[in-house]
């Protein structure tokens, strides 16, 4: 069956577009519940820059953005490399408890509620 919106020869599904109408922010809200300060992140990237696993794909900034936008598919691969060394937390200008957020996120990704 041809998708309805195949007018231009491509489909909206799987497109690059962020669809806020379909965003599922439940995981984000659960995490915020646990670490409220984490909403203060201004996406400066220091955490990624200093990260011991930054070159291995660990990216808290991006993980936070995805959570906020309700896209959870890539979260596991984005946080798996974290070694919990805690450097990120020491450099964050907004005092986000990054290490604790990542820890809880890792657990929540394994313990669906």
């Amino acid at each position: 069956m041809k998708p309805a919106n195949d007018k231009w020869g491509f489909r909206a599904e799987g497109s690059e577009q962020i669809n806020l109408d379909k965003a599922d922010s439940s995981l984000y809200r659960r995490l915020l519940n646990r670490e409220p300060g984490f909403a203060a992140c201004l996406f400066c990237g220091s955490c990624r820059a200093t990260c011991t696993s930054g070159n291995e794909g660990m990216n808290f900034r991006l993980a936070h953005l995805l959570l906020q936008r309700g896209e959870t598919a890539r979260l596991k691969s984005l946080t798996d490399p974290c070694l919990l060394c805690g450097k990120c937390t020491l450099v964050c200008p907004r005092n986000v408890n990054i290490r604790a957020v990542v820890y809880n996120l890792k657990i929540m990704l394994h313990e669906p509620f």
């Binding site: 696993s53 291995e56 490399p81 070694l83 820890y103 657990i107 394994h110």
Partner: peptide
């Protein structure tokens, strides 16, 4: 008990 299974072992290729 709770967390062990939530973090995979790290395997960096020696070259990295």
């Amino acid at each position: 008990n709770r967390a062990n299974r939530c973090a995979p072992a790290i395997r960096r290729p020696a070259a990295q």
